Amino acid sequence: MNAKAVTNEYAKMRHRQIGLIIALLAVSASALTAYTSLGSGLLDRLDDPDGFGWKVMFGGLGMGVSLVAPILLAVLASRQVEIEHTGNGWLSSSTAGLTPGQMCRAKFIALGGLVILATIAWGAALIGFGAAIGIESPIPGGRWTAYIGALIVINLAVLAFHILLSAKIENQLVCVGVGIAGILIAMFSQILPDWISHLTPWGYYALTIQSAYVGTEPVYFDLPYFSVLGLAVVGGGLFLAITGRFDRQEA
């Protein structure tokens, strides 16, 4: 990847409100998780030896991510790609030797690094929140790490999809509309068969939820490692293949 192309993408972010969107991504899911956890009686069971507090925060994070990540990732990709459509950036970059496919990969690397940091912030903020309010059971560090890693893969897959969609469709309202549809898919996938959830990247938000109520108590679920790995391999392969086709077409 052309390092200069990635640097140019960061320069384009200055007037695209990318920093604000990343901040919303980092803060909103964590805030929703804290709010729903407190509403679940977290403060009344801080001394629960079975880790009630951590379980409700796992479930709250899954819900919060499903509500905010699809639309914010859509807006993030749309804002970064829109400038190429409005400013004839595809053609001007092509004359400088930078193909549309290379530009899409540069956008993914530039935005992807910020998305990874925002996702890590979810885990760090919630661990800090749980420790600050006094949850007495041990922090499930391994489970948190695995879950945040899975969310990074899912977020990057959704981001890659929206970069390709925004590059192909000039009307960015369509792309944002797809992001809104992604919220519905992520939410309804929680009650759909797993095989249906595997068909879209948004369905993986439901597949990887780590805790939910069974009866009156929250319980942990196993993380579907192979499903997340499959998303990474298939999603990455498709992104490279499609941007490779962009390389061979005229801007």
Rank of each mutant, 00 (worst) to 15 (best):
W54K: 11
L111P: 02
G123F: 03
Q102N: 10
P193F: 08
I21N: 04
A69R: 07
D48I: 12
M187T: 10
Y225M: 14
L165N: 01
S137E: 06
I83N: 04
L229S: 10
G244Q: 11
L159C: 11
S94P: 02
L173A: 15
A96V: 10
P138Q: 01
A96Q: 05
E9N: 13
L223T: 11
L76R: 14
L156H: 00
W202N: 13
A34L: 11
A186L: 10
A167S: 15
A121R: 05
F226C: 06
A181H: 09
A186D: 04
T200C: 08
V234G: 07
L98R: 00
R45Y: 14
G101S: 12
G89V: 05
G64Q: 09
I127A: 12
F246Q: 09
R143N: 15
S40N: 03
I242M: 14
A11S: 09
V27W: 00
Q80V: 13
P100D: 00
Y35C: 05
G142C: 04
I154S: 11
G87F: 05
G97S: 03
I180W: 11
T7L: 11
V6F: 06
Q190E: 15
S92C: 04
A110P: 07
W195S: 11
G97F: 07
G236M: 03
A26L: 14
A110Y: 05
S189G: 02
C175Q: 13
I242K: 04
G149A: 05
S197R: 05
L165C: 08
G53P: 00
N155M: 02
I116T: 12
G97R: 14
E82P: 10
L114P: 00
A121W: 11
L165D: 08
M1E: 09
D50C: 02
L91F: 06
I120Q: 10
G130C: 00
V27P: 05
A150D: 14
G113R: 08
